[in-house]
Simulated assay, not measured.
Amino acid sequence: MTAVQKYTLPARLLHWLVALGIIAAFALALSFDDMPLSPGKLKLINYHKWIGITVLGLAALRLLWRLGHRPPALPAHMAAWEKLAAHAGHALLYLLMFGVPLGGWLYSSAKGYPVVWLGLVPLPNLMDKNEALAGTLKTLHMLGGWSVIALAVLHAAAALKHHFIDRDDVLRRMV
């Protein structure tokens, strides 16, 4: 029996930290979406922003790490379409890991709301206040959030399929 060819420890840690951050940010967004404006809602929105900026930073670290460290090869038994789907899914996940937080930051800037990471580090506005564009940015941010969750569910389902049906090492490489 051969040993599992795993992702590096930093790659695995960044993967799971980003995943937890995305889930937490999404859950927070769902929790405050229908709340009336209140100090409690503003606190949850700030937590959402903090997590989003953290995910953005972790995604940047993850991409930098990935550029210098090749991931384990996909199993030889995978069909060409499965390999293509895996690569396309990963590319789209990376795009969303950057696009969704940046979209939220752009939305905050367009609304004129500051982003202050962890309540300590004020981040620059990415654009001038623009109420006309803010609604579109909010919609894009929300669609991106739902998209990253949907894609993450497919990603997890594929990993579980590999583990329980194909009985290969795809899932074990990341745990």
Rank of each mutant, 00 (worst) to 15 (best):
76 A>I: 10
141 H>W: 04
100 V>T: 08
171 L>R: 06
99 G>A: 12
168 D>Q: 10
131 E>R: 15
148 V>S: 00
130 N>D: 15
149 I>L: 02
102 L>K: 09
93 L>D: 02
113 Y>H: 15
138 K>N: 10
168 D>A: 12
122 P>R: 07
90 H>T: 07
107 Y>W: 14
158 A>P: 01
105 W>G: 04
101 P>W: 05
153 V>L: 15
151 L>I: 14
162 H>Q: 05
115 V>P: 09
74 L>R: 13
122 P>I: 14
80 A>C: 05
72 P>W: 01
156 A>L: 15
119 G>R: 04
117 W>E: 04
94 Y>N: 03
143 L>N: 01
143 L>P: 05
161 K>E: 01
124 P>F: 04
150 A>T: 11
163 H>V: 00
158 A>R: 11
82 E>V: 12
151 L>W: 07
123 L>T: 10
73 A>K: 03
77 H>F: 06
165 I>W: 13
102 L>A: 11
76 A>G: 07
157 A>V: 12
76 A>M: 10
95 L>I: 05
84 L>S: 13
168 D>H: 07
110 A>H: 01
135 G>T: 14
159 A>M: 06
79 A>W: 00
171 L>M: 11
165 I>S: 01
122 P>G: 09
170 V>F: 00
104 G>W: 00
131 E>W: 12
109 S>P: 11
129 K>G: 00
167 R>Q: 13
164 F>S: 06
93 L>Y: 01
138 K>M: 07
85 A>N: 11
162 H>A: 05
129 K>R: 15
102 L>D: 05
167 R>V: 04
92 L>H: 07
114 P>S: 15
88 A>Y: 12
101 P>Y: 04
148 V>E: 01
107 Y>H: 14
145 G>F: 02
138 K>Y: 09
145 G>M: 00
132 A>V: 15
102 L>N: 10
121 V>S: 02
90 H>M: 03
170 V>G: 04
83 K>E: 09
138 K>Q: 12
106 L>N: 04
110 A>Q: 04
154 L>K: 13
72 P>N: 03
122 P>A: 11
113 Y>A: 15
139 T>C: 00
133 L>C: 09
159 A>W: 06
99 G>R: 03
150 A>Q: 03
152 A>Q: 05
167 R>E: 13
159 A>Y: 10
92 L>P: 03
140 L>E: 02
164 F>T: 07
171 L>T: 08
153 V>K: 06
95 L>Q: 10
165 I>H: 08
105 W>R: 11
132 A>F: 14
116 V>T: 15
142 M>G: 13
110 A>Y: 01
72 P>V: 05
84 L>G: 11
74 L>A: 13
126 L>A: 08
81 W>L: 09
109 S>D: 06
98 F>G: 11
79 A>N: 10
141 H>N: 04
130 N>H: 14
92 L>K: 02
84 L>F: 12
154 L>H: 12
118 L>D: 02
124 P>C: 08
82 E>N: 11
